[in-house]
């Protein structure tokens, strides 16, 4: 079955990103397809490569990046939410006159239409948030 996932909260403060990750991993192991994971609200903070948790803690961002690489998953950060919260890729940084970008590997920035599209194209859309 084709699943898409909406993550509405940032990492560490809320459990949402952990639950979404555990759900995604289980779905993949069962042979389901993850069509897209869309990050909205503070969820876009899941996609900054500057995240540096203590060594004995999980690295939530790297975990997403690794999953994307292994399973070719489409990780999308909402552009409007990302701009508000200071998450940028090279294009966004240039367009907005910023001196750096910080998007993590495997993520891309795109519009909210990608969330609606995920709802249309997937058999199930499940939300993890606060």
């Amino acid at each position: 079955m084709k699943f898409s996932i909406l993550v509405s909260e940032g990492p560490y403060t809320h459990e949402a990103a952990d639950t979404a990750y555990n759900f995604t991993k289980a779905a993949l192991e069962k042979g389901h397809e993850i069509f897209r994971i869309f990050f909205y609200h503070d969820g876009v903070n899941n996609g900054t490569r500057l995240t540096t948790p203590p060594q004995d803690d999980r690295n939530i961002v790297n975990r997403w990046s690794a999953l994307a690489q292994e399973h070719d998953i489409d990780l999308v950060l909402c552009v409007a939410a990302a701009q508000r919260r200071g998450i940028a890729d090279a294009d966004e940084a240039r367009r907005n006159g910023k001196d750096a970008d910080n998007i993590a590997p495997g993520f891309r920035i795109s519009g909210l239409g990608q969330l609606i599209d995920a709802g249309i194209e997937s058999d199930r859309l499940i939300t993890f948030g606060d």
Binding site: M1, F3, S8, N22, F23, K25, A26, A27, E29, K30, H32, R124, L125, I126, T127, F128, G129, D130
Partner: peptide, 20 residues
Amino acid sequence: IDYNGFVDLVEEYDKTQSWL
């Protein structure tokens, strides 16, 4: 249930709603 069971429920029911 565990996360495998969670996935099975999402598959079994035609849609999900999250009460946040």
